[in-house]
Design a binder for these strands. Structure first.
Lengths: 313, 313
DNA sequence: TTTTTTAATAGATTTTGACTATTATTGTGA
DNA sequence: TCACAATAATAGTCAAAATCTATTAAAAAA
């Protein structure tokens, strides 16, 4: 049994296809097939059932795959130990970011980070919180940036900053006269929401203390971008809520439509999340330090009330 | 990096000697040396400091060795998973037993076990509790039989039976007239003890609620076998305490000198102990079942009071 | 210093891992 | 149902590797 064989098994288990698994492992299909067979011979069991297509994993196979994941992950950590000892910060690092954070946060830290840690090859992927969690758990992401608390087993959360909700209230809106918004005043039926799947949407719904199921509302206009929501609000379709960082880029003449909340300001908690096994922890720490350092200057709110990003149904 | 390389590193780390490590790994010294070097080259660090003899392990090396232990242990468990799936109970199994249990318990279960599980190659080693713990922790023993509770981190305890203490009181002794012994009556100064290192000795001392440090007693006669203690008692050197199973083989005419304790009878708890990682758990379970089944018939005491086998200093 | 112990190096041999080319099998769509 | 596409297994070859024996180098012990 070799680590390579276990890696091949993992690739096949993941793609359910020897040819594709071989490609992803950068070897030819026969090479991978033979190594998997060799392991199966050595253990004298079948890991994969090839009698049907797509191939399936046998019962023992499932257990072996689970254990192989352990072993391969633990083996990768050897490299990590050495890097840490050398003080080396480098290599590929795949970071997932939720869409509502991506455009505002990424430009703030990206340049600083790649200058400070030139040997890290940072690969950024925009993904929903759900994908983020899945990919962190199965090792396809080294870390993610998402709204928290999520409280997922095996995932650690390290808060980066607290970002208040801001109201964008057009002049014709009933709340327009108010200087500051109060949670009590909100009515989810006249608030423009992001599309389903965005955790900021769920945050807003939680903030309004409304039932998550809005199917039976009189009208529904939902978009994937805050820009659209602001435009729709300008058209008199209702008000909307924005994360603080997104309000910084709004045109000066529309600025007056922005209204803060009364304290304690409802806010979302944005955290760096990563697998509790702490692979590549030095890079994760470096990333956290860079982002924290930058954000500390940009957002310094106290007296916030964290709104859960999780849909209640 | 291969599992083999990691195993070689572990062998060197354990023996602090490449030649010996190679022997234990059943390869030649250059083979092992080269593989270790190859790993060091790949990681671009030194695991071992060969500038002095005996060789020492570098700081990074320590961490790598620790991680390598993980990996190798996890890798071995793959074989385990397969065996479990096949319902196969076999292979080498190294069991350590404390000296005061060995001669009485081993004959009771050994034959039954090797007949029931002919594919298991049971290797029995007589060792003190301290060695048992050490060897279970570093993987040289698959399990041990010892007096408990020990409450050691990473070690699981599965009680097998409770074995009462019995008094062996010669006729000239002050306690000879009594039918049943009471803990209160005991005086550690006239009780013949096993040598230092035996946990039964510590149990007796705890039972007498005496300080563990007995250096300043007027006389000390200590032996490694209960036979000697009984002979000494017969010579009028004092009384002694025996585990119940050891009293079964005493000559009929000396039987009358044996005295039980009043209930709750002080007893030692004998357990199967093993690493919590549960390697070879199927064999461990099989062993536990065989021993429990046999002992259930031989020792059926209720109302016992467990005496700690641990010295208090 | 000489001897012994122990690790590294050199060179030969075997084993293994990977490749290309091809065959066998399953699944799908005409 | 048959042919074609997709996919895995097999065969044969080659290069890389792991291992071996023999020897050298270096450190520790006598």
């Amino acid at each position: 049994m070799t680590i390579t064989q276990l890696q091949y098994v993992l690739a096949v288990a993941e793609h359910r296809n020897f040819t594709l698994a071989a490609e992803k492992s950068f070897v030819t299909q026969p090479t991978l097939s033979m190594q998997v067979q060799k392991l199966e011979d050595e253990l004298d069991i079948l890991i994969f059932d090839r009698s049907k297509k797509p191939i399936s994993i046998t019962d023992v196979g499932q257990k072996i795959v689970a254990q192989a994941k352990n072993i391969v992950a633990e083996a990768e950590r050897i490299k990590d130990i050495v890097d840490q000892d050398k003080g080396f910060i480098g290599g590929d690092y795949v970071l997932g970011i939720i869409p509502t954070v991506m455009p505002t946060l990424l430009p703030m830290f990206l340049n600083t980070f790649i200058i400070k840690y030139p040997k890290v090859n940072l690969i950024i992927k925009e993904q929903s919180t759900q994908s983020l969690i899945k990919n962190i758990l199965d090792g396809h992401l080294d870390a993610g940036i998402a709204a928290t608390p999520l409280e997922i087993e095996f995932i650690k959360e390290r808060p980066l900053y607290y970002e208040p909700f801001m109201g964008y209230v057009p002049n014709n809106h009933r709340l327009a006269p108010k200087e500051e918004l109060d949670t009590e005043d909100l009515d989810v039926s006249d608030i423009l929401l992001l599309q389903d799947g965005h955790c900021f949407r769920d945050g807003v719904i939680n903030l309004c203390q409304a039932p998550a199921n809005l199917r039976d509302e009189k009208f529904q206009i939902e978009s994937g971008s805050f820009e659209t929501l602001v435009s729709l609000a300008d058209e008199g379709m209702g008000m909307t809520l924005l994360p603080y960082l997104n309000t910084l880029e709004i045109d000066t003449h529309k600025r007056e439509l922005l209204k803060p909340f009364v304290k304690p300001t409802p806010a979302r908690e944005i955290s760096l999340i990563y697998h509790k096994s702490e692979l590549k922890i030095q890079i994760t720490e470096a990333l956290k330090e860079v982002i924290s350092g930058i954000v500390r200057g940009a957002i310094a709110f106290q007296d916030v009330k964290i709104i859960s990003p999780i849909s209640k149904n």
